[in-house]
């Protein structure tokens, strides 16, 4: 076989930012042991480093009340070497994770004792994106970044806006977000995140072989993805949360100026402060319409009477860019 030029082998250098769900409430009720889960993930992380000397991994723990970087391979001189009975990577990461969990618990206690059960995915996504931006700016030669969310706890609708913003900024800087969701029901946020950014969303059905899923599906570098068929997200839940009560809704009201979503009509947009036209408002509040049509696609944008008004539309995220375009199109 003719040896390809060595240049070909360089395209797979990757920077993998892993967001690790450490929500204690989820893990205490989940069938898979956290230690079991960790050993799969750690092996996966190590395998990424094994693949290429220049590969880099960053791990961010997603807790209930805080997020934190718990591992960065660029500051670890020899992560693969044995230390105790495990690679140095393992012990360093576990050490940091322990510290993080303790801190997270304290923060939770210090804060209000609300029934928060979802992890701060928005926070860790933002941290990952910040890190990646820094890498982008470090110079012309940088590894190809991607984000992997290994998430188990359900979505927190209250984080909708923040998460969507993170997703869109990831899309804009062409960073794919892969999602390995191990919870029992699909996560709408992660589905959307992967769908919009062109990442992979997969929910492994058999958790005792988590490593196999991770290494077969999520270890694929961006370069190889051009040649490989990978599980495609089918059936993305595009529903949005309203900005006012953080409820997941099918139908709602969208501000024609800033596209904020509300589950009920308002006199004034709470996001951008636009005052909505009086006539329509009267009507809108008169008819307390909350229609739960299950699957309507983008369906609105009034065409001949719009000034600044509140428009009733379907509020799925995938449609939102469409609606945005729509509004421009109608000259609003």
């Amino acid at each position: 076989m003719a040896s390809g030029p060595s240049k070909l082998y360089a395209d797979d250098v990757s920077l993998l930012v892993v967001l690790l769900d450490t929500n204690p409430f989820f893990w205490s009720t989940f069938s898979l042991q956290f230690s079991e889960f960790l050993s799969h993930v750690l092996a996966f992380l190590n395998s990424i480093l094994l693949l290429n000397q220049l590969n880099q991994i960053v791990v961010i723990a997603t807790g209930c009340s805080s997020c934190s970087y718990i591992y960065d391979s660029s500051s670890d001189s020899n992560p693969g070497s044995e230390f105790g009975n495990m690679p140095r990577l393992y012990s360093n990461l576990l050490q940091k994770l322990e510290e993080f969990v303790a801190r997270d618990e304290q923060l939770l206690k210090a804060g209000k004792q609300g029934a928060i059960a979802s992890s701060l995915l928005s926070g860790s996504l933002s941290m990952a994106l910040c890190y990646i931006q820094r890498v982008f700016r470090s110079g012309p030669l940088h590894p190809q970044p991607r984000i992997l969310c290994i998430q188990g706890s359900p979505d927190g609708p209250e984080q909708y806006v923040a998460i969507m913003n993170a997703i869109f900024s990831a899309q804009r800087s062409t960073v794919p977000i892969d999602s390995c969701y191990i919870g029992s029901n699909n996560s709408a946020f992660l589905q959307q995140a992967s769908y919009i950014t062109g990442g992979i969303y997969y929910r492994p059905p058999q958790l005792d072989g988590l490593f196999q899923y991770l290494s077969t599906v999520f270890a694929t570098d961006l370069y190889s993805r051009a040649f490989l068929r990978l599980p495609k997200s089918v059936g993305v839940d595009f529903r949005a949360s309203c900005f006012c009560h953080k409820q997941t809704i099918d139908m709602g009201y969208v501000c024609s100026v800033c596209l904020s979503i509300f589950c009920e009509p308002h006199k004034k947009c709470s996001t951008c402060g636009s005052v909505f036209g009086q006539a329509q408002l009267d009507v809108a509040s008169e008819a307390s319409r909350k229609r739960m049509a299950s699957d309507t696609k983008w369906c609105s944008g009034s065409n001949d009477k719009i000034g600044t008004g509140i428009v009733e539309v379907c509020v799925k995220s995938a449609c939102r860019s469409v609606v945005g375009c729509f509004t421009g199109f109608l000259g609003m």
């Binding site: 204690p24 956290f34 059960a117």
Partner: peptide, 25 residues
Amino acid sequence: GMEQIKCSLPSDEAYGSLRVSISNL
């Protein structure tokens, strides 16, 4: 999706089990 996990366990216990898992590993 979207169904919330019941916070049946008090946070001490939940965090405790998490820590045990880590130190076990």
